[in-house]
Computed example of a mutant assay.
Amino acid sequence: MSAPPVKPVLQKPPGYKDPNAPAGARGFRPPPRKPVLPPFFHPKKRKTNYGRACCCCFCVFFLIFLLLILISAAAFYLWFDPKLPGFHVQSFRISHFNVTKRPDGTYLDAKTTTRLEVKNPNGKMTYYYRNTEVDVTVGEGGYETELGTTTVPEFTMQEKNTRSLRVETKVSNKLVVDEVGNKLKTRYRSKTLPVNVEARTKVGVGVAGLKIGMVGVTVKCDGMSKKKLDGGDMPKCVINMLKW
């Protein structure tokens, strides 16, 4: 008697689970492992740039601060309408002027009286002046000669106020070059002698009872002639701020 034919072994389909297999062994597969990449494929961690952030914050705050200053300055200007003080030479008189030639040189004796008119055109601001040094010179070019310096005590200019400052100077036995002495004497007699007055001081501003800083100011009254001054001409002086 011949043996029965052998049945072929059936292959299990993919994903087949044996119901008779233990529970722990049913279809257990270890989790897939991530492929190991070379170091240069690893993503780099971004570093926080604190310096750049601080710089940006500083720029923003600075712009805001600058904007506030500009707005405050505009509001101040519109409300107070500030104007610079005005200086004029009200009068100038030479009470004594003598050029003497001696064997040892030429000497000058002179006395002058100058009146400076100071105006405060502001209606809401007060000006505070420190001690003011005033120089008086005559002549121009190569023969300009000093006629003395005096100091005017500090004073205050209220709103819409005008004040006259009396300035007296003198020189005695001042040695000058012979040629300069001759020119001064000739132009003094013809009343064409150029006169220059320069004042140096410091000015502070008072607003709503508060004093704001002191600024150096130089006032120059140049190019005046004695003839024009005697005729009542009141030339306006030039004010240079922040100069001392």
Rank of each mutant, 00 (worst) to 15 (best):
M1C: 14
S2L: 15
P13C: 07
D18K: 00
P22V: 10
G24H: 15
G27M: 07
R29T: 08
R29E: 08
P31T: 05
F40Q: 01
H42W: 06
P43N: 01
K45P: 00
R46E: 03
R46V: 01
K47I: 02
T48Y: 03
N49M: 01
R52I: 11
C55H: 13
F58E: 09
F58T: 14
V60K: 06
F61L: 10
F62H: 14
I64W: 14
F65Q: 05
L66C: 13
L68E: 08
S72R: 13
F76I: 09
Y77S: 10
L78Q: 10
W79A: 10
P82K: 06
P85V: 09
P85T: 08
G86R: 11
G86T: 15
Q90E: 15
R93D: 13
H96F: 11
F97R: 03
V99I: 09
V99K: 02
K101I: 14
P103H: 13
T106K: 04
D109G: 03
D109I: 03
A110C: 05
T112A: 05
T114D: 05
L116A: 05
E117L: 15
P121R: 08
G123P: 07
Y127M: 14
Y127P: 02
Y128L: 10
T132V: 06
T137M: 12
G139F: 00
G139T: 02
E144M: 12
E144G: 12
E146Y: 07
E146H: 08
T150M: 02
T151P: 01
E159W: 14
T162L: 02
T162K: 06
T162R: 06
R163N: 07
S164M: 10
S164P: 04
R166I: 12
K170F: 14
L175Q: 00
V177C: 09
V177P: 04
G181S: 05
K183T: 09
L184W: 03
S190I: 09
P194I: 01
E198W: 04
K202N: 04
K202G: 02
K202R: 07
V205N: 07
V205W: 13
G206Q: 05
V215L: 10
V217W: 01
T218V: 15
M224Y: 01
K226N: 01
D230H: 09
G232P: 00
P235Q: 06
V238G: 09
I239W: 02
N240L: 14
M241K: 15
K243S: 15
